[in-house]
């Protein structure tokens, strides 16, 4: 009996500590959401603090961001557009490449795959200065295209699609050929739909990568009206802190759509992000 109660106590203790760890992990996000209802002047003076009284709570930051912060919504639009373009273009090209590397026998196939692995091992930061110079020389600086280009054929997505396509039934391709389908028809009408789950995972990875991308857009985006959300928000991080209203309410609205999507598509987020951390 004594042993049983001790075991029960241990189980309760273990579960409580696990919940505590989870709450610690969520704590910064919860504080962010709470603080977004605190006037920005108080945030500027006190930082995020435990000593909050209920009468300080107001919707002032949100009122400001919806009525006076046109630039924030420009950044939001830019981020949405850039992420959407990245997802669509990169899914199209990367799935095509991964599919061919997995299911066709052709000369150089192993060489191409080796190149994919090689690019995965080269950190982007090493290439960014020459790439930046290339953008200047081709006058692409401060365009959406410059931001999107490095992700259009994302090696991590190619790798993922190849692994996934390796498991697809090759017999389907032969059957479709007998029925007179073209190779392109086979890919777009038969095989690509079968790659659905991998497309979802990579859409999320690519979307997150471009939504949160920082260093490269910081180099190539030069004017405020072209900024994406992370670049714009980072520009507000000045020691003078006269923009904390946009900064804090804007941060909440940057995270919330992603968290909501995550709650609906957890499985795809998990496979996408665990894949993506290989490439930062």
């Amino acid at each position: 009996m004594a042993k049983n109660t001790r075991k029960k106590g241990l189980i309760i203790l273990a579960n409580i500590s696990i919940i505590l760890v989870a709450l610690i992990a969520l704590f910064p996000i919860i504080s962010l959401i709470f603080s977004s209802f605190i006037p920005s002047s108080l945030l500027m003076r006190n930082g995020i603090t435990f000593s909050v009284s209920m009468d300080q709570i107001s919707l002032g930051n949100y009122e400001f961001i919806f009525t006076q912060a046109a630039e924030y919504w420009t950044w939001y639009g830019n981020s949405m557009l850039i992420s959407a373009l990245t997802i669509v273009l990169s899914l199209f090209f990367s799935s095509m490449v991964g599919y061919a590397l997995a299911l066709y026998d052709f000369k150089g196939r192993n060489f191409f795959f080796l190149l994919v692995l090689l690019i995965l091992m080269i950190p982007f930061e090493i290439l960014m200065l020459p790439l930046f110079q290339l953008m200047i020389n081709t006058q692409l600086v401060n365009t959406y295209l410059a931001v999107i280009l490095p992700l259009i054929v994302a090696p991590i997505a190619v790798f993922f699609f190849r692994q996934y396509a390796l498991g697809l039934p090759k017999e389907l391709m032969d059957a479709a050929r007998i029925d007179g389908a073209t190779e392109y028809g086979i890919f777009f009408r038969i095989m690509l739909p079968l790659m659905g789950p991998s497309l979802a995972a990579m859409a999320i990875l690519l979307g997150l990568m471009s939504w949160n991308n920082f260093l490269w857009p910081l180099l190539v985006l030069r004017s405020n009206d072209m900024f994406t959300l992370p670049i714009g928000l980072a520009a507000l991080l000045t020691p003078y802190g006269n923009n904390y209203d946009i900064l804090i309410a804007g941060s909440v609205m940057t995270i919330i759509p992603i968290v909501i999507l995550f709650l609906f598509f957890q499985r795809y987020f998990v496979s996408g992000v665990t894949m993506g951390s290989v490439k930062g």
């Binding site: 949160n212 900064l247 995550f262």
Partner: peptide, 25 residues
């Protein structure tokens, strides 16, 4: 537990860093 610990990975370093900057001001 898994979901709670995963959510921070969804925030950008800039937003996450901004929160920490204010919590650790």
């Amino acid at each position: 537990f898994r979901a709670s610990l995963f959510i921070p990975a969804l925030t950008s370093t800039i937003v996450g860093g901004m929160i920490f900057r204010l919590m650790f001001s």
